[in-house]
Nucleic acid binder design. Sequence first.
DNA 1: TTTAATTCATATTGACTTAGTATGAAAAGA
DNA 2: TCTTTTCATACTAAGTCAATATGAATTAAA
Lengths: 145, 145
Amino acid sequence: MRISTKGRYALRLMLDLALNDNGQYIKIKDIAARQKISDKYLEQIITMLSRAGYVKSVRGAQGGYRLAKRPEQYTVGMILRLTEGSLAPVACLEDEENECTRADCCATLELYKRLDEAIKSVIDNMTLEDLVELQRQKNGNDYVI
Amino acid sequence: MRISTKGRYALRLMLDLALNDNGQYIKIKDIAARQKISDKYLEQIITMLSRAGYVKSVRGAQGGYRLAKRPEQYTVGMILRLTEGSLAPVACLEDEENECTRADCCATLELYKRLDEAIKSVIDNMTLEDLVELQRQKNGNDYVI
DNA sequence: TTTAATTCATATTGACTTAGTATGAAAAGA
DNA sequence: TCTTTTCATACTAAGTCAATATGAATTAAA
């Protein structure tokens, strides 16, 4: 039941882009330095976000990334699902093709449904803007101490 | 964010013991046959439950297992934590020794705390007895179709 | 027009986890 | 004594995680 580094780094990355947004494009190297995360690993992660249209990119010198939308337009769920894949606690809740033949008589499925709803209600009701506000309350714009 | 087979099988195992409790000790082989799970794998899992005192065992011919307590005395959380380990979505919420140095300034920690609470509120408020009742509503005492 | 900086693309790796199998000892009833 | 069962431990193949590594494509600046 862990969220992997991919999802956690993606959230920090998006949060970093939001906090440091000044109209310029931001280099992955700078984010990696601020967040103390391998820049090559962050590249892979931001590629996912870029392909999904969550960030805009410009190549070459003075290139970089910036958010494609305003922070309140991203839910945490969007970012986590993109990078982590489904967050459902069991595969049979993920989609129809994983549906279990025992679904009709499976008592534990009810438990997993409740878990799934509980998780969704958290991640789909929190936005990147909420994280930005929490961060500002804690430390101003500096993400790292 | 998946619950592994260990935790899921443990729940089905305990549910099977609860549904088939007739005062006798139940063989792991019978449970494995009903649940269509490898009996050797189930042995490993029930060993955990046994060591924790969740089930009582008797060795030798006519031996087997039975619940140590009444179904309403086990929460789903107890069973899952024992077999899966911590269900916290990030390690830094697990215990003090995993606490992160960035905790004071980490906005995402707030998200993970909310997720953790949401998960706990489901698994710590559902008992084995609740699963038994759900199962009876669905299919009578037969766990497998 | 060259050079440096940057994103984009893909392959590789070592450590770890998952989901079991395999082997056999210990205990207890028939 | 023989069979059945739990108990204990070792092993394994496949997959996942968390990166590294290598280099091509693109763009701004010198």
